[in-house]
Design a protein around this nucleic acid. Sequence first.
DNA 1: AAGTGGTCTAGACCACGCG
DNA 2: GCGTGGTCTAGACCACTTT
Lengths: 237, 237
Amino acid sequence: MEKLKKYKQIYEFVKKKIQSGTYPEDHYIPSENELCSKFSTTRTTVRKALEELLKEGFIEKEQGKGSKVIRRSKSIGLLTVRGFSGSTPDYEVLTKITKEPKISKWDPVIIFPLSEEEKKSDSIYFQRVRYINNKPIVLENNWYSQHALELIKSEDFVDGSFFKTLSQNHYIEIIGSEQELRSIAATKEVAKNLDTPVGDPILQISIRFKTSRSDLFLYSILYCNTSEYPIRNSYFL
Amino acid sequence: MEKLKKYKQIYEFVKKKIQSGTYPEDHYIPSENELCSKFSTTRTTVRKALEELLKEGFIEKEQGKGSKVIRRSKSIGLLTVRGFSGSTPDYEVLTKITKEPKISKWDPVIIFPLSEEEKKSDSIYFQRVRYINNKPIVLENNWYSQHALELIKSEDFVDGSFFKTLSQNHYIEIIGSEQELRSIAATKEVAKNLDTPVGDPILQISIRFKTSRSDLFLYSILYCNTSEYPIRNSYFL
DNA sequence: AAGTGGTCTAGACCACGCG
DNA sequence: GCGTGGTCTAGACCACTTT
């Protein structure tokens, strides 16, 4: 799996230009036809790339005018397939591993039904805290099945990113996710990690990531302090 | 605007079959090629319809096998373009208007920037409570600009649905939304309407709906009691 | 080998915004 | 009138799953 799909190339190209500021906020990106000639492809493929940028809230489309870079507000665009690192705009983001990956029992807080193979196997579990501008904002618990993928130590994470590691070292891609959202009161553990009073309202996001390997799912439970950085989501078409 | 777009026809066709149980949970729907011949169209169009069903969590795709109806769990699939009525599975849903549509000032709780025309105009405001199985689950505040659309009385809502009214009587379609999620403590008003203690964790969803009329946006702020019915979201590809 | 969904090509016509 | 994005056609080849 060496070759990047064409629509992914276009997606990455435009995304980088946006993130680097080459395409500034509120400005129009090149038209679909221009991107077509630039990448020697057709509108179907270009539109597929733009559609993904649309879903992730990087651009918005205006019929008859063009596609415009969205003015990014102070909030984190979660709720997309990609993990945390791919979803925050330009804040200073920092991740600390609070519990190293280790073999453990499946935690009953996981609300998604496990497959038979997963149930028979133990899980690999690790915990991280995500900081934005030096404040702890998200506590993240992660599990995956030991039968499907070996234990990966956190020092082996590529650029500190678990998803990037899966992609580059194991050729595993995330192809989708299901999420369930609840508002809960901070437990002692959540409060301690997010430096917030016990009982404060916290957004709990339970996620099941689907991967390109049909026997491997990733399960995450995020606890988000949304008081300063709410979660963003957009939906089009 | 009489004619329904073809991909929308296919979308509605499959969605109805799923909701009526003709395509049961966990079963495969007709293949893309079958749908092509049924509707005398090409895969591009069929795939566009299925993509929307995918985004809204009605189906999932399995490469090499087919598209399967998703087993629906006890949660409300919000966070889509469509409003509440289009997003809950098969529970008994009931809506009560708690504040009739009337002209009022814009409420500063709206986090989205208003256009100049909107600022110059007053807003139409109404409030509803959504019940699932006779429990109040969502308190909904809604605004839109008076300059863009007249006041519509709640007794004129088609099937009690505001969005259906817009579509059928005013030819206005919802084409997208932006959302921002926060976990908050229930205020007195929220607590009273949702029959829950003051201070309980509540999921607040602020939404800006884009419509086919470029000068008209709909603004909603939902307060959701997620303790029994969490909010669902899925994301693919 | 046959059928499925995933990607892609090379066009077409339409609705919309703007000068 | 022209360029933009929105919809649609009619194919092609690929990767994957099942028989």
